[in-house]
């Protein structure tokens, strides 16, 4: 059961969105975020929503998945809404109790915030749903590569990230094994009070840490044996090639963004 855990939740597929160059997808996602924050009006938000819905439809990923992506942030969403609702003091007062009051402007801002955050999460989830973590890492490395000139360790960060991704399943398997071993010795991990369980967690984490260090040491030797010498002069098996569709997608996104900005200007 532990093995099923995935990070970033990638749904393999072959839709238009899946096939887009990951570098473009990242840039487009950034533009989309700007789109949501550039338009301070419901019209702007509606355009953003339309954009997100079209993209989600094109990705052929079940809408249920996007509802799921919202769930974990529900508490955060509610707290934000409540704070806005109760503490915004401008506008016409509809209800009041001591220092807490609900105004029409407060309701307005709360609703606006909720829609904006939901769109933000659903839209950005599309990026991780349609791009495998390793491709994403690769794209980030290439997008950030200009920073190498500033001595920013772009390659090293990407390598660390991809090794981490590589070892997630291995370490999960190992955790499973250690847990079984400790349970066999009578450690209470699933039962007992919170304190007991927390204390027993140490008996899993310590062996896991030790073995991780040993693995890291062996992996480093193996990498050196395969002539690893940092990022300089490396070539890549994975080639990222941009196609006309990538430019088209970028253009469409830019057009939406421009629309949101222009409409926002006219409104105010």
């Amino acid at each position: 059961m532990l093995r099923d855990i995935t990070i970033g939740q990638y749904f393999p597929g072959n839709s238009l969105i899946h096939r887009l160059d990951p570098r473009f997808k990242i840039v487009i996602t950034v533009l989309y975020i700007i789109m949501l924050f550039a338009g301070g009006t419901y019209t702007g938000l509606a355009i953003g929503a339309a954009y997100a819905l079209i993209a989600i439809a094109l990705s052929k990923i079940k809408p249920k998945m996007f509802v799921k992506s919202i769930k974990p942030i529900m508490p955060f969403l509610l707290i934000t809404a409540l704070i806005n609702l109760l503490l915004v003091s401008s506008g016409e007062i509809l209800w009041q109790w001591k220092f807490l009051k609900i105004t029409d402007a407060g309701i307005n801002i709360s609703v606006f915030m909720i829609i904006r955050i939901v769109l933000l999460i659903a839209g950005t989830s599309l990026l991780t749903y349609t791009t495998s973590p390793i491709t994403l890492t690769d794209a980030i490395e290439r997008l950030l590569s200009p920073l190498k000139k500033l001595k920013f360790p772009v390659h090293e960060l990407a390598m660390m990230m991809s090794i981490a991704l590589r070892f997630i399943p291995t370490l999960i398997e190992e955790t499973d094994k250690i847990m079984s071993a400790q349970k066999a010795r009578g450690a209470e991990i699933d039962t007992g009070s919170f304190i007991t369980r927390a204390r027993n967690l140490v008996s899993i984490l310590v062996p896991l840490f030790i073995s991780s260090f040993r693995r890291a040491d062996e992996l480093a030797t193996a990498m050196e044996c395969r002539c690893y010498n940092g990022g300089a002069g490396r070539t890549r098996l994975r080639q990222l090639k941009s196609a006309p569709r990538d430019y088209a997608a970028l253009f469409v996104t830019a057009a939406f963004l421009a629309g949101v900005i222009i409409i926002g200007r006219i409104w105010s």
């Binding site: 973590p133 390793i134 991809s162 090794i163 991704l165 590589r166 291995t170 693995r215 062996e218 992996l219 193996a222 990498m223 395969r226 002539c227 690893y228 010498n229 002069g233 490396r234 070539t235 890549r236 098996l237 994975r238």
Partner: peptide, 21 residues
């Protein structure tokens, strides 16, 4: 497990070649 670097088989096989340019 401790000598495979990449999460895709063919990319791991390419690792040394990538390093050698």
């Amino acid at each position: 497990d401790n000598q495979i670097v990449s999460s895709i088989v063919e990319e791991d096989v390419a690792f040394a070649l990538e390093n050698l340019g």
